[in-house]
Protein backbone atom coordinates (compact mmCIF):
# COMPACT_ATOMS: atom_id res chain seq x y z
CA UNK A 1 0.00 0.00 0.00
CA UNK A 2 1.67 3.20 -1.17
CA UNK A 3 1.87 6.45 0.71
CA UNK A 4 -0.67 7.94 -1.64
CA UNK A 5 -3.16 5.13 -1.02
CA UNK A 6 -2.82 5.69 2.71
CA UNK A 7 -3.58 9.37 2.36
CA UNK A 8 -6.47 8.54 0.06
CA UNK A 9 -8.02 6.39 2.79
CA UNK A 10 -7.12 8.70 5.63
CA UNK A 11 -9.68 10.74 7.52
CA UNK A 12 -7.38 13.70 8.00
CA UNK A 13 -8.57 16.40 5.64
CA UNK A 14 -5.70 18.75 6.41
CA UNK A 15 -3.24 16.02 5.45
CA UNK A 16 -5.10 15.38 2.23
CA UNK A 17 -5.00 19.06 1.38
CA UNK A 18 -1.27 19.19 2.07
CA UNK A 19 -0.42 16.05 0.09
CA UNK A 20 -2.76 17.11 -2.71
CA UNK A 21 -1.06 20.48 -2.88
CA UNK A 22 2.40 18.98 -3.10
CA UNK A 23 1.26 16.45 -5.72
CA UNK A 24 -0.20 19.37 -7.67
CA UNK A 25 3.05 21.30 -7.49
CA UNK A 26 4.89 18.19 -8.66
CA UNK A 27 2.65 18.04 -11.72
CA UNK A 28 0.74 14.93 -10.62
CA UNK A 29 -2.59 16.54 -11.37
CA UNK A 30 -4.71 13.42 -11.64
CA UNK A 31 -3.70 12.16 -8.22
CA UNK A 32 -4.08 15.61 -6.71
CA UNK A 33 -7.51 15.90 -8.25
CA UNK A 34 -8.68 12.70 -6.57
CA UNK A 35 -7.63 13.97 -3.18
CA UNK A 36 -9.18 17.40 -3.70
CA UNK A 37 -12.46 15.86 -4.83
CA UNK A 38 -12.68 14.05 -1.49
CA UNK A 39 -12.21 17.13 0.65
CA UNK A 40 -14.03 19.81 -1.34
CA UNK A 41 -17.37 19.32 0.44
CA UNK A 42 -15.68 19.37 3.82
CA UNK A 43 -13.95 22.69 3.25
CA UNK A 44 -17.14 24.34 2.05
CA UNK A 45 -17.45 27.70 3.74
CA UNK A 46 -13.99 27.58 5.31
CA UNK A 47 -11.32 30.18 4.54
CA UNK A 48 -8.96 27.60 2.98
CA UNK A 49 -11.66 26.74 0.44
CA UNK A 50 -10.53 29.54 -1.83
CA UNK A 51 -7.12 28.04 -2.44
CA UNK A 52 -8.55 24.54 -2.56
CA UNK A 53 -11.15 25.42 -5.17
CA UNK A 54 -8.54 27.12 -7.31
CA UNK A 55 -6.27 24.06 -7.21
CA UNK A 56 -9.22 21.75 -7.73
CA UNK A 57 -10.36 23.66 -10.82
CA UNK A 58 -6.84 23.86 -12.16
CA UNK A 59 -6.30 20.14 -11.70
CA UNK A 60 -9.28 19.52 -13.99
CA UNK A 61 -7.83 21.94 -16.49
CA UNK A 62 -4.45 20.24 -16.41
CA UNK A 63 -6.00 16.80 -16.87
CA UNK A 64 -7.83 18.14 -19.92
CA UNK A 65 -11.27 17.68 -18.42
CA UNK A 66 -12.31 20.98 -19.88
CA UNK A 67 -16.04 20.61 -19.37
CA UNK A 68 -15.54 20.46 -15.64
CA UNK A 69 -12.68 22.96 -15.47
CA UNK A 70 -14.70 25.53 -17.40
CA UNK A 71 -17.53 25.16 -14.96
CA UNK A 72 -15.37 25.04 -11.82
CA UNK A 73 -13.33 28.11 -12.74
CA UNK A 74 -16.53 29.96 -13.52
CA UNK A 75 -17.88 29.03 -10.10
CA UNK A 76 -14.63 30.04 -8.49
CA UNK A 77 -14.77 33.47 -10.11
CA UNK A 78 -18.36 33.90 -8.94
CA UNK A 79 -17.74 32.65 -5.39
CA UNK A 80 -14.57 34.65 -4.71
CA UNK A 81 -15.05 37.97 -6.41
CA UNK A 82 -12.28 39.50 -4.36
CA UNK A 83 -9.75 36.73 -4.94
CA UNK A 84 -6.42 37.61 -6.50
CA UNK A 85 -6.76 34.49 -8.63
CA UNK A 86 -10.09 35.61 -10.04
CA UNK A 87 -8.61 37.11 -13.18
CA UNK A 88 -6.68 33.96 -14.00
CA UNK A 89 -9.67 31.79 -13.16
CA UNK A 90 -11.96 33.81 -15.45
CA UNK A 91 -9.47 33.46 -18.24
CA UNK A 92 -8.92 29.74 -17.73
CA UNK A 93 -12.67 29.22 -17.59
CA UNK A 94 -13.04 30.91 -20.97
CA UNK A 95 -10.02 29.05 -22.31
CA UNK A 96 -11.54 25.75 -21.19
CA UNK A 97 -14.50 26.50 -23.42
CA UNK A 98 -12.09 27.30 -26.20
CA UNK A 99 -10.51 23.88 -25.73
CA UNK A 100 -13.91 22.27 -26.18
CA UNK A 101 -14.54 23.86 -29.53
CA UNK A 102 -14.69 21.10 -32.17
CA UNK A 103 -13.55 21.02 -35.79
CA UNK A 104 -15.39 23.61 -37.92
CA UNK A 105 -17.51 21.03 -39.70
CA UNK A 106 -19.43 20.04 -36.57
CA UNK A 107 -21.87 21.86 -34.36
CA UNK A 108 -20.26 25.11 -33.18
CA UNK A 109 -22.17 25.61 -29.94
CA UNK A 110 -18.97 25.41 -27.88
CA UNK A 111 -17.18 27.74 -30.28
CA UNK A 112 -19.85 30.39 -29.85
CA UNK A 113 -19.86 29.88 -26.08
CA UNK A 114 -16.09 30.26 -25.97
CA UNK A 115 -16.13 33.47 -28.01
CA UNK A 116 -18.74 34.88 -25.66
CA UNK A 117 -16.78 33.91 -22.54
CA UNK A 118 -13.50 35.23 -23.89
CA UNK A 119 -15.16 38.50 -24.86
CA UNK A 120 -16.68 38.75 -21.40
CA UNK A 121 -13.22 38.26 -19.96
CA UNK A 122 -11.72 40.98 -22.12
CA UNK A 123 -14.51 43.36 -21.15
CA UNK A 124 -13.98 42.61 -17.50
CA UNK A 125 -10.17 42.81 -17.50
CA UNK A 126 -9.22 45.03 -20.43
CA UNK A 127 -5.68 45.44 -19.08
CA UNK A 128 -5.04 41.84 -18.17
CA UNK A 129 -1.84 40.10 -19.22
CA UNK A 130 -4.07 37.45 -20.79
CA UNK A 131 -5.90 39.82 -23.15
CA UNK A 132 -3.44 39.28 -25.99
CA UNK A 133 -3.89 35.52 -25.80
CA UNK A 134 -7.65 35.89 -25.46
CA UNK A 135 -7.73 37.96 -28.63
CA UNK A 136 -5.73 35.35 -30.51
CA UNK A 137 -8.10 32.64 -29.34
CA UNK A 138 -11.15 34.66 -30.38
CA UNK A 139 -9.64 35.20 -33.80
CA UNK A 140 -9.07 31.49 -34.17
CA UNK A 141 -12.63 30.71 -33.11
CA UNK A 142 -14.08 33.39 -35.38
CA UNK A 143 -12.22 31.85 -38.25
CA UNK A 144 -13.86 28.50 -37.51
CA UNK A 145 -17.29 30.06 -37.90
CA UNK A 146 -16.21 31.74 -41.12
CA UNK A 147 -14.72 28.55 -42.45
CA UNK A 148 -17.91 26.64 -41.61
CA UNK A 149 -20.17 29.06 -43.46
CA UNK A 150 -17.72 29.21 -46.35
CA UNK A 151 -17.45 25.46 -46.75
CA UNK A 152 -21.22 25.00 -46.65
CA UNK A 153 -21.66 27.62 -49.38
CA UNK A 154 -18.89 25.98 -51.39
CA UNK A 155 -20.50 22.57 -51.03
CA UNK A 156 -23.71 23.88 -52.61
CA UNK A 157 -21.55 24.88 -55.58
CA UNK A 158 -20.01 21.41 -55.66
CA UNK A 159 -23.36 19.61 -55.65
CA UNK A 160 -24.56 21.96 -58.41
CA UNK A 161 -27.13 23.82 -56.37
CA UNK A 162 -25.80 27.13 -57.68
CA UNK A 163 -28.67 29.25 -56.44
CA UNK A 164 -28.18 28.05 -52.87
CA UNK A 165 -24.45 28.60 -53.24
CA UNK A 166 -24.85 32.19 -54.47
CA UNK A 167 -27.30 32.99 -51.69
CA UNK A 168 -25.03 31.42 -49.08
CA UNK A 169 -21.99 33.36 -50.33
CA UNK A 170 -24.09 36.53 -50.30
CA UNK A 171 -24.91 35.84 -46.68
CA UNK A 172 -21.28 35.00 -45.95
CA UNK A 173 -19.96 38.23 -47.48
CA UNK A 174 -22.55 40.21 -45.57
CA UNK A 175 -21.99 38.43 -42.27
CA UNK A 176 -18.17 38.31 -42.24
CA UNK A 177 -17.05 41.53 -43.89
CA UNK A 178 -13.47 41.26 -42.65
CA UNK A 179 -12.96 37.58 -43.29
CA UNK A 180 -9.71 36.24 -44.66
CA UNK A 181 -11.86 34.01 -46.86
CA UNK A 182 -13.56 36.98 -48.47
CA UNK A 183 -11.51 36.75 -51.66
CA UNK A 184 -12.28 33.05 -52.01
CA UNK A 185 -15.95 33.72 -51.31
CA UNK A 186 -16.15 36.42 -54.00
CA UNK A 187 -14.56 34.06 -56.50
CA UNK A 188 -16.72 31.05 -55.67
CA UNK A 189 -19.83 33.20 -55.81
CA UNK A 190 -18.78 34.15 -59.33
CA UNK A 191 -18.05 30.50 -60.08
CA UNK A 192 -21.56 29.45 -59.02
CA UNK A 193 -23.22 32.36 -60.82
CA UNK A 194 -21.22 31.60 -63.97
CA UNK A 195 -22.21 27.94 -63.96
CA UNK A 196 -25.82 28.84 -63.26
CA UNK A 197 -25.85 31.30 -66.15
CA UNK A 198 -24.19 29.21 -68.84
CA UNK A 199 -26.35 26.20 -68.04
CA UNK A 200 -29.52 28.27 -67.86
CA UNK A 201 -32.61 27.99 -70.02
CA UNK A 202 -33.33 31.07 -72.10
CA UNK A 203 -36.65 32.29 -70.83
CA UNK A 204 -39.15 31.46 -68.15
CA UNK A 205 -42.80 32.28 -67.95
CA UNK A 206 -43.87 33.63 -64.59
CA UNK A 207 -46.95 35.37 -63.28
CA UNK A 208 -45.33 38.74 -64.05
CA UNK A 209 -44.66 37.78 -67.64
CA UNK A 210 -41.72 36.38 -69.53
CA UNK A 211 -38.35 36.62 -67.80
CA UNK A 212 -35.14 36.47 -69.82
CA UNK A 213 -33.58 34.11 -67.37
CA UNK A 214 -30.26 33.43 -69.07
CA UNK A 215 -29.51 37.03 -69.91
CA UNK A 216 -30.28 38.16 -66.37
CA UNK A 217 -28.06 35.50 -64.94
CA UNK A 218 -25.18 36.30 -67.26
CA UNK A 219 -25.42 39.93 -66.24
CA UNK A 220 -25.52 38.96 -62.60
CA UNK A 221 -22.41 36.82 -63.02
CA UNK A 222 -20.63 39.69 -64.72
CA UNK A 223 -21.49 41.95 -61.84
CA UNK A 224 -19.97 39.42 -59.43
CA UNK A 225 -16.83 39.41 -61.56
CA UNK A 226 -16.61 43.18 -61.32
CA UNK A 227 -16.96 43.02 -57.55
CA UNK A 228 -14.11 40.53 -57.34
CA UNK A 229 -11.91 42.53 -59.68
CA UNK A 230 -12.51 45.74 -57.81
CA UNK A 231 -11.76 44.25 -54.42
CA UNK A 232 -8.88 41.98 -55.42
CA UNK A 233 -7.40 43.09 -58.74
CA UNK A 234 -4.38 40.83 -58.19
CA UNK A 235 -6.37 37.84 -57.00
CA UNK A 236 -4.86 34.42 -57.44
CA UNK A 237 -8.20 33.47 -59.01
CA UNK A 238 -8.02 36.22 -61.62
CA UNK A 239 -6.89 34.01 -64.49
CA UNK A 240 -9.81 31.65 -64.01
CA UNK A 241 -12.20 34.53 -63.46
CA UNK A 242 -11.04 36.23 -66.68
CA UNK A 243 -11.78 33.05 -68.62
CA UNK A 244 -15.28 32.97 -67.23
CA UNK A 245 -15.99 36.60 -67.96
CA UNK A 246 -14.74 36.15 -71.51
CA UNK A 247 -17.33 33.50 -72.11
CA UNK A 248 -19.98 35.55 -70.34
CA UNK A 249 -19.23 38.54 -72.56
CA UNK A 250 -19.37 36.41 -75.67
CA UNK A 251 -22.77 35.09 -74.73
CA UNK A 252 -24.02 38.53 -73.79
CA UNK A 253 -22.94 39.88 -77.16
CA UNK A 254 -25.36 37.58 -78.94
CA UNK A 255 -28.18 39.38 -77.12
CA UNK A 256 -27.02 42.84 -78.11
CA UNK A 257 -26.59 41.62 -81.69
CA UNK A 258 -30.18 40.40 -81.72
CA UNK A 259 -31.69 43.60 -80.40
Amino acid sequence: CSEYQKVLKSEDIALKFKVGDSLFQAGKYEKANRLFAQIVPKYKGKPQAEKLMYLYSKSYYETKDYYVSGYQFERFAASYPKSEKREEASFLSAKSYYMLSPVYSKDQKETKDAIEKLQEFINLYPNSQYVAEANTLIKELDFKLEKKAFEIAKQYDLISDYKASIKSFDNFIFEFPGSSLREDALFYRLDAAYKLAVNSIEIKRTAEGIVRLKKNRLEQAKEYFNTLKKAYPNSEYMARAQEMVLEINEELETYSAKS
Binding site: S105, K106, I152
Partner: peptide, 11 residues
Protein backbone atom coordinates in the same frame (compact mmCIF):
# COMPACT_ATOMS: atom_id res chain seq x y z
CA UNK B 1 -24.17 17.42 -35.00
CA UNK B 2 -21.41 16.62 -32.55
CA UNK B 3 -20.13 13.72 -34.61
CA UNK B 4 -21.40 14.04 -38.14
CA UNK B 5 -19.70 16.50 -40.45
CA UNK B 6 -21.67 19.29 -42.08
CA UNK B 7 -21.23 18.11 -45.63
CA UNK B 8 -22.95 14.81 -44.86
CA UNK B 9 -26.01 16.66 -43.60
CA UNK B 10 -26.28 19.76 -45.79
CA UNK B 11 -26.30 17.75 -48.99
Amino acid sequence: NDKTNDHVIYR
